[in-house]
Computed example of a mutant assay.
Amino acid sequence: MYPVTAAFLSALRRSHVVTLQVDAYRGSTLLKADLPVSGGAVTVDGGSQIRRTLALTVADPSLDPKLDPAATLAPFGSELVVRRGIRYPNGQTEWVPLGRFRIETVQAAVAQNAIEVTGADRAATVKDARFTAITQANTANSVVQEIRRLIQEALPGVPVTDLTGATASTPAVFWERERWDAIEQLGQAIGADVYFDSAGNGVIAPAPTVSTEPAWMIDAGELGVMVDGSRETSRELTYNGVVAAGEGDGDTPPVTATVWDTNPASPTYYLGPFGQKPYFYVSPLLTTVAQCASAARALLGRVTGLVRQLDLSCVPNPALESGDVVRVRFPDGTAETHLLDSFTVPLDPSTAMSLQTRSPEPATE
């Protein structure tokens, strides 16, 4: 979760004044500050290559770029920096960034006297920078260094922070075309997610699990933030084992490792009534048994986390990030710890925030 003060989290549970700001940039040059925004939303989806996307209504038809590539809202390199905050009674505002978005489309809604803008985070720029020839990985780099190199080739100077501490070396592999697919493969080889955060910077982070301390409580009742919710329990996309393997060369079999859910208290315990249901993952970046085992353990945390799913609406907390752990307490007093998969932050002061979560853990009192 983006770091905010205790006062910010406390204010979310009471009546508070919401502030919004959207500024337009081209590179480091501010084109226009505080665009007139009448609505929209930022959607964050940890399962998507482009984690953060923007839908925005600009209440000024004069900003329609038409055919001018240098216009403020022209989709030729302009970026929108979006913030949502709380203004305190003393007049000070605490801001939370919601993302830095490349403008993708602009549509003039004549009847509504407004402009509809869509945007995507900086992963879209990296994704577009496809390899023009078969490219070999730099084996002199660690996997973290190679991820950073591939990102900064497309976005020179953009910070890429590593939170994994991984030191594994990059194997000798070739990539044909898709740069972001190569980055994802490298991340999976060290059990990491790679994404752009709310400030527009690259992050290499360990795959999330529910074992970390909850970042926020979503609860009902007095001073609670929950508006509504539904619960679903399903085994359709749930697995309790992962088989991770490299690619053989035709003469020798590929290296492989299998990891099971070995917790007897887990509803997906591999020797329990759930049965055995393995998930298979193959990557050319896995060249040792240890690498296969690391990748399998990281994936296991995701594929066993689909036993319990929640769709919630609550008071918007713009500081949340996909992969955060949240504690959810229902009106009947039961509580569950969940991973936050995706959510939508509205760009208006009155709409509730929608969230989708998952958890392998049963409810507790």
Rank of each mutant, 00 (worst) to 15 (best):
F8D: 03
W95N: 09
E153V: 09
V328K: 05
D348W: 02
R231D: 11
V173G: 04
R235T: 14
Q107H: 13
A199W: 08
G119C: 12
S38C: 13
V227A: 14
V282W: 00
W180I: 11
L312W: 11
I50G: 02
G119T: 10
D68P: 03
T72V: 15
Q21N: 06
T209I: 04
N113S: 15
A244H: 03
V96W: 03
G305V: 00
Q309C: 07
C314L: 06
I134Q: 13
T167Q: 13
V126F: 01
I183Y: 04
L63Y: 05
V243L: 04
P318V: 11
G27Q: 07
E94S: 08
P65V: 03
E213Q: 15
A207Q: 13
Q185P: 00
A129M: 12
S283N: 03
I190Y: 01
G229R: 11
A168G: 11
E321H: 09
P36F: 06
T287Q: 15
Y270A: 08
V42K: 07
G46P: 10
T268L: 03
D45S: 10
A207D: 07
C292G: 07
A59F: 01
L73T: 07
A6P: 03
V225N: 04
T357L: 08
S230W: 07
F280R: 15
V194A: 09
V106R: 06
T132A: 12
S78L: 05
E104P: 00
D34K: 14
P206Y: 06
S234V: 05
G27E: 06
F196I: 04
L237R: 15
R83Y: 11
D251Y: 13
P75M: 05
D181S: 11
D324K: 01
V242K: 10
T287N: 13
V259N: 07
W216F: 15
W95V: 02
P65M: 02
I147L: 10
L306M: 09
D341G: 04
V289E: 10
V255D: 07
A192I: 08
D193C: 01
A352N: 09
A257W: 05
W95I: 02
G323C: 06
L54N: 01
Q21M: 10
V325Q: 11
P264K: 12
V144P: 10
I115N: 02
F174V: 02
V96C: 03
A109H: 04
T93G: 02
E176R: 15
H16K: 02
T118F: 00
A129W: 05
A137I: 00
L312S: 11
A335P: 00
D311T: 14
A120D: 01
V307L: 15
V242D: 13
A24D: 09
W175V: 08
A7D: 11
K277Q: 14
E184K: 09
R177I: 13
N141H: 15
T258Q: 14
E146N: 14
F131E: 04
R297Y: 01
E104F: 09
R358Q: 12
S38P: 01
A120E: 06
G305K: 01
Q276S: 15
G246I: 01
A108Q: 10
C314V: 08
Q136V: 05
L20N: 09
G323H: 02
S10A: 13
S322P: 01
R14T: 14
Q291H: 06
V117C: 03
L12P: 02
